Simulated scan of single mutants.
Amino acid sequence: MAPEYALNGLFSVKSDVFSFGILVLEVISGLKSKGFYHPNHSQNLIGHAWKLWNEGRPLELIDICLASSCMLSEALRCIHVSLLCVQHHPEDRPNMASVVIMLGSEIALTHPKQPGFFTKMESHEAGNQSSSTNEMSITLLEPR
């Protein structure tokens, strides 16, 4: 969910770009954004990707199953584009037409700024990987 929607309840024309960036990170990493847990730090998936990017280790984000069957340069480009898509301010994100061009060509890409929702979870959240409890009840309707 884009920061402008989560914080203010407002969609922008770049909210879909943010969501696409998250989707790309999930596909590349093989991990879900929701409930992401890393044993060495308490950052979310975006924070984890940003940390690896800044440390010069973005290829560590790639899922092992994907790494053996993809071109690493293309995977690195996908990570780079996804980080451009998840920037905090909508005006810093590319539009979807630009994203398509970036993914389909080898044009130079700008350096991403710090992403939106680059957060650290509280210690009790980081260790909690459980899902929500389904409290749904089933009502059987019978005619009179």
Rank of each mutant, 00 (worst) to 15 (best):
G30T: 12
F36D: 00
S68A: 09
E4C: 09
C70T: 09
L59S: 01
R57V: 03
V24N: 03
V27R: 03
A67L: 08
A2D: 13
P94F: 03
H48C: 10
G56V: 06
N40P: 00
I64P: 01
I28T: 03
Y37I: 15
K32I: 11
R93V: 02
P94V: 04
H48S: 13
L66H: 06
K51L: 09
P94E: 07
F20N: 08
Q87V: 07
I79Y: 01
E60N: 05
F36S: 02
L52N: 02
C85A: 09
R77Y: 06
S19Q: 07
H38M: 09
L83D: 03
R93W: 05
K34D: 04
V27W: 02
L31T: 03
I64A: 09
A6Q: 01
F18Q: 11
D63H: 06
E4G: 13
P90D: 04
M1V: 15
S12Q: 06
P90M: 10
Q87L: 09
P90V: 06
H88P: 00
S29T: 02
C65Y: 05
C85T: 07
L23M: 15
F18Y: 15
S15L: 10
S19A: 08
R57Q: 10
C65V: 05
R93H: 12
I22F: 11
V27Y: 03
I22C: 09
Q87F: 06
F20P: 00
D92F: 03
E74T: 14
V86L: 08
P39H: 12
N54C: 14
I28A: 02
L66N: 02
I22H: 00
F18C: 06
S68W: 01
I79D: 01
V27P: 00
A49G: 13
P39N: 06
R57T: 07
M1G: 14
I79Q: 00
S68E: 13
H41L: 04
L25D: 07
H38C: 09
Q87N: 08
V27N: 05
C65A: 09
S12W: 10
H80T: 08
R93L: 08
G9P: 11
S82P: 08
L61I: 01
L59N: 02
L66Q: 03
K14Y: 11
E74Y: 15
V81L: 07
M71K: 15
N54H: 14
P3T: 13
R77I: 07
N44M: 12
A6Y: 11
P39V: 04
S33R: 08
L84E: 01
S19H: 11
H41R: 11
W53N: 11
E74K: 15
L25I: 01
L61V: 01
P90G: 13
S73D: 15
K51R: 10
H80A: 11
G56D: 10
V13Y: 07
F11T: 04
I79M: 08
W50C: 00
